[in-house]
Write a protein that binds this DNA or RNA. Sequence first.
DNA 1: AGGTGGACCCGAACGC
DNA 2: TGCGTTCGGGTCCACC
Length: 296
Amino acid sequence: MPELPEVETIRQKLEPRLVGRRLESVEIHDPRLVRPFEPVAVAAELEGERVVALERRGKYLIVRFESGKALLIHLRMTGSLRHAPNGTLADDPHRRAVVKLDDGSDVAYRDVRRFGTWQLLEAAELEPYLEERLGFEPLERTFTARRLAQRLEGRRAPIKAALLDQRTVAGLGNIYVDEALWRAQVHPLRPAGTLQADELARVTRSIKDALRAGVKRQGASLRDYSTPDGGRGRMQDRFRVYGREGHPCARCGTPIDKIRTAGRGTWYCPSCQRLERQAASSSSSRPSRSRRHSSV
DNA sequence: AGGTGGACCCGAACGC
DNA sequence: TGCGTTCGGGTCCACC
């Protein structure tokens, strides 16, 4: 599922192919993509536009045009973009739209489950639209533990639910939330408003680390996601908890547990991520390597 | 008010 | 083997 690292990878790869190009023709095959507008009407509006920038905000991809208009693309669960030189686009039953650029190349949009959306917004509509829906951009310096604390203050929802809310932090999804909470050693069910200063600092740092690791490895290709050149991400090989129930925790060896939080599969280490803070003890807070559990 | 759970969608995995 | 059922997840929206 494309989260921030996947969308950012797509942005980086597509940017040099798209910026400066004019959209010569646009075909939208699935009315759902541009609902409630008519595919032919949206296509006609896009044709002739020249791309001046390709940006990302949270999980949104933003194609900015010379006219000031912007195409807001959200891939949701299974959306992906593919760029191909003239005539080399392979057939694809799940293709929902194709844009031909003025250098003869094609940008194809694929979406198996058809949750993805394309919204063409006027210049003045873009910022208000994004501001209403999105919180901090987690990889920017302005995202700090102090600001996260303000956003979480008084919230009784589990920290995992709070982090999945795009108005808290923009760009986290089910995978990277679990990975970040594991890194931070915070239990996914902890009421968000009860996190202490040290935990907030670790969560903030861990969100940045988990997302940067994802970007560095060009995202995670579990099923549908691939980069615009058809390549696969490699982050799926580095997951510490996501999808790993029963496997030993990389930190302490305890088998990873799976629960359900906010309607989502949730993986965590029951030993490293305690719901209750452990009482101070004279012995080490972490099991030693010699005592670690074996794999199941 | 704010949190939770269902709807949307469809292929894959699962169970009998 | 084959068929029906369940699962999953981003976001919106109804409901409590």
